[in-house]
Design a protein around this nucleic acid. Structure first.
Length: 183
DNA sequence: GCCAGAACTCTGG
DNA sequence: CCAGAGTTCTGGC
């Protein structure tokens, strides 16, 4: 479904976004009329807005906390450890292969991790496509809704993350339940 | 337009 | 240790 594109300046994509706070810092959630198109983690609102602008340079960005209140609430609950995984509508542009990988990531149960090779094998491509899976994960714009952080190395070790490896580790600890040590 | 290299890798020699 | 395997994107010529 790639309808627009050539029009470019004629019909700029309308994107509404909101920024809220969470245990992981500031969270930016951006969405079109169809669903979320970008979820970013950061510590500076300006940096998050710049990230959104870099991914959608020609879109008409509009701050609208109300329109994204539901999504922001779900994401905040998830980041606080109060929800398994939000089932929010997505509108992320991606190739069929990327969507397949993202679907496989969503199929990973909460608290579990899987290697890139296992994901590739689950798609019926063999372990040779592990790097292709990694590339597809790296292109994932909605890091929280699509649990790309549950993909780990062959030894269960973290290798990389677009939003920072340390943040990825913390996300995994949160899902494993180890991130809630009440004193 | 095409070619080369990179990107959240894995596995075998 | 080094190179190859499968996909997509980006930049340089």
């Amino acid at each position: 479904m790639r309808d627009e594109g050539r029009d470019g300046a004629l019909t700029p994509q309308q994107i509404a976004y909101a920024i809220f706070d969470s245990p992981f810092g500031r969270v930016l959630a951006a969405a079109t009329e169809r669903g979320l198109c970008l979820v970013g983690l950061g510590e500076d609102d300006a940096a998050l807005e710049a990230e959104l602008r870099a991914d959608y340079p020609r879109a008409a960005l509009r701050r609208d906390d109300g329109a994204l209140a539901g999504a922001a609430e779900a994401l905040a609950a998830y980041l606080a450890g109060h929800g398994p995984c939000a089932d929010l509508p997505l509108d992320a542009p991606g190739t069929p292969f990327q969507r397949r990988v993202w679907a496989a990531l969503c199929a990973i149960p909460c608290g579990e991790t899987r290697t890139y090779g296992q994901i590739a094998e689950g798609l019926g491509m063999g372990r040779g496509a592990a790097r292709a899976v990694g590339a597809a994960c790296g292109a994932n714009p909605v890091s929280l809704v699509i649990p790309c952080h549950r993909a780990v190395g062959s030894d269960g070790k973290l290798h990389g993350f677009r939003w920072g490896i340390e943040r990825k580790r913390r996300l995994l600890e949160l899902e494993r339940g180890d991130a809630a040590p009440p004193p």
